[in-house]
Amino acid sequence: MKLGGQIVTFVIAWAVLLLLLGINVLLAYQPIGGLHGFVPIGIAATQAFIIMAIFMKLRGRPSLKWVFAGAGFFWLMILLGLSSTDYMTRAAWPL
């Protein structure tokens, strides 16, 4: 197997993923207050983005794969977003 440009990309992606994992674990022990729920999710989203773009080969020309990869997450956002309108405001109303 030739050591082509693609393989280098894969290995760099892998290294970045591990790095992000390390950051995630380290930050878990830092007093970052109210952010402690959001930071891991943000890091996970970045990792997921890298995996999908590089390992699942989404990068490159726009294609139909983008649509359906995006659709899953878009619909997930509908579910999470609209159900959380209830949980965020249930106690607040009736006033």
């Binding site: 619909w75 509908i78 609209l82 309108t85 209830d86 949980y87 965020m88 405001t89 249930r90 607040a92 109303w93 009736p94």
Partner: peptide
Amino acid sequence: GFFVWGHHMFVTGMSLYSGVVF
């Protein structure tokens, strides 16, 4: 059609704010 499911829950004790949105 995916944004409207809460209209089955107007009287269930869901947040009134959500009710208005749905």
